[in-house]
Design a protein around this nucleic acid. Structure first.
Lengths: 333, 333
DNA sequence: CTGAAAGCGCTAACAG
DNA sequence: CTGTTAGCGCTTTCAG
């Protein structure tokens, strides 16, 4: 009644060879006489033998699975990266264990540890922030870890990103060049380096170059949700801003819809630029202008990088910056 | 230089007990004297011992990981289900191996097999269609499989869904009651049972009850993409339809934007109802009326069901239908 | 309550 | 080119 697992031993017996030989043909080792290989293959087929990856993992110390820590797979931005990760992983015969962390530091540490316990060959981390505790854990393990679309201030781990500072700076400069004097900067938690140390920096530099004084009151810190964006309209309007640089597409969509609902015309009275160029930017009306990021590629390149690390290959470029772009749509003049 | 893995054996030696005892305390077995437990726990802590899940999996034949096959994690509908799956999985100490299939039958079979190879304890399948080959594979394995938000015409596997027929029927009836005579039915491939055997059936039944003859020309088969929706406007307009029942949110958003761009007023001249109530329905303007599905819950319940199956618990309801709703927004009168 | 011992199914030297 | 032999790190009877 029990699952009658057939093992490498059964195949060996039926084929009159040793386990080692079966193992060799299963693993594509070339040192097997064609005739023997054929015979073994036949038996494998006849018995419908399937290697047990767990046993293999124990013996070889390789599981061909990588862990992927993601804040929320329901967030288009991260989902897009993850898709790139999975595709490249599949290409290299890896599977991914996907774990949502909700950007919760404790949960991230916990997830990391269970991933390590499961002996993943490598890990890709996506997150808005790397807590000191998490960084400690990163340092403790020998398992390669690469960051995808995520900032580590201390830059110890390999990573794949775009140049957030330059991208924001460029967009804000354009806003200024079109005559905007009061430009809001709306972003997620400033506790996250990507917002405070990168995007905000780009914003400030653009202002500085244009000789516009930085006004803290034009910085709106919120969470990256649609609803928060919707609720921001009164605050934005009361400050008299004529444009906003926003760190997240859902947030930006909320802001835009909130303004529109309040009778503010986009883009003639209010311009908005978003940052991630997910599907949402194109679906809303007016379509949103955005920094374009090669989302899929960020994930794909990160996974590719990880394969090299897992393979102990030489890696020349540890912190990859992929090119970004600026997509002009209908939410800007 | 090598990773100095410390094993259960090291702990046993340091604590002056046997491996068996260490194993017991690690696994929370109650038959251990408190003093012994304490001593072992101390050593575990001091040595920073972490059980190797692979070895454990080999010995116990349980991996505490489940496989999740998903068409595309970048699709909000499936991503939402998957989120529910992962949360419940985490609750029960499982991890998920997530694999994208692109709804490709061959790929699905292949993925299923590598999942089985990895000895997952169970599988959740999401897909628009179950090919005969895939169904064969399902039948061959003893590993429990449950379908989430996915139709199997032959109903052999446990599943969690909503009543698509009734939901569509109800929405179309409302459309008819508001005076619409020519109602388009727009969906993904009719080769998929969920479209042809369920949704379309609901559409037909609603027409029938109202005494409206079924017109094949009002059925538009496409893929579930935003772009396809955008391109449908001329065809829709030329047929003189005043409303559409759509099977997917991105598709519906495309249709709505396409109509709007062509100068057709929604909802006064054209009503549209979508089916999945993802974030997109709320973000577009006008907001789309939709069948509401408890997306997260479908995944969550499916995973919960799977835990029971993996545990050999009695399952009374094999094919679960969760309640759906109708959300009136601004794309309908 | 605890220990000894036998595997789980496979890989990886090492011989030959 | 192929077989032998150890394990990989842990769980699980079976005794005691």
């Amino acid at each position: 009644m029990e699952k009658q697992t057939i093992t490498i031993y059964d195949v060996a017996r039926e084929a009159n060879v040793s386990m080692a030989t079966v193992s060799r043909v299963v693993n594509g080792n070339t040192n097997v006489k064609p005739a023997t290989r054929k015979k073994v293959l036949e038996v494998i087929d006849r018995l419908d033998y399937r290697p047990n990856a767990v046993a293999r993992g124990l013996a070889s110390k390789k599981t061909t699975t990588v862990g992927v820590i993601i804040p929320d797979m329901t967030n288009m931005f991260f989902a897009s990266l993850a898709r790139g990760i999975d595709d490249v992983a599949a290409m290299y015969k890896y599977n991914i264990i996907l774990a949502n962390s909700d950007s919760n530091g404790e949960r991230e540490v916990q997830v990391l540890n269970t991933l390590l316990t499961k002996q993943v060959d490598g890990i890709i981390f996506m997150g808005n922030e790397i807590t000191p505790e998490l960084r400690d854990e990163f340092r403790r393990t020998k398992t390669p870890i690469v960051l995808a679309g995520s900032i580590d201030e201390e830059n110890v781990n390999p990573s794949v990103n775009i140049d957030y500072v330059a991208a924001v700076q460029e967009e804000v400069k354009n806003l200024i060049d079109r005559g905007n004097k009061k430009i809001a900067f709306v972003c997620g938690p400033l506790s996250q380096a990507i917002n405070s140390k990168y995007r905000l920096k780009g914003y400030k530099e653009a202002l500085k170059s244009a000789g516009i004084p930085y006004d803290e009151k034009l910085v709106f810190e919120t969470d990256n949700s649609y609803k928060s964006g919707m609720l921001l309209q009164p605050a934005l309007s009361s400050m008299g801003v004529t444009a906003a640089m926003v760190s997240d597409d859902e947030l930006a969509a909320g802001i835009m819809n909130g303004m529109t609902d309040a009778g503010v015309k986009v883009p003639s009275e209010f311009e908005v630029i978003t940052s991630n160029d997910t599907k949402i930017a194109e679906i809303v009306r007016p379509k949103m202008s955005s920094i374009t990021q090669p989302l899929y590629d960020i994930g794909a390149v990160a996974m590719r990088l990880l394969t090299k690390l897992m393979n102990n290959e030489e890696v020349t470029e540890k912190n990859v910056l992929l090119p970004y772009g600026l997509m002009k749509r209908d939410s800007t003049k």
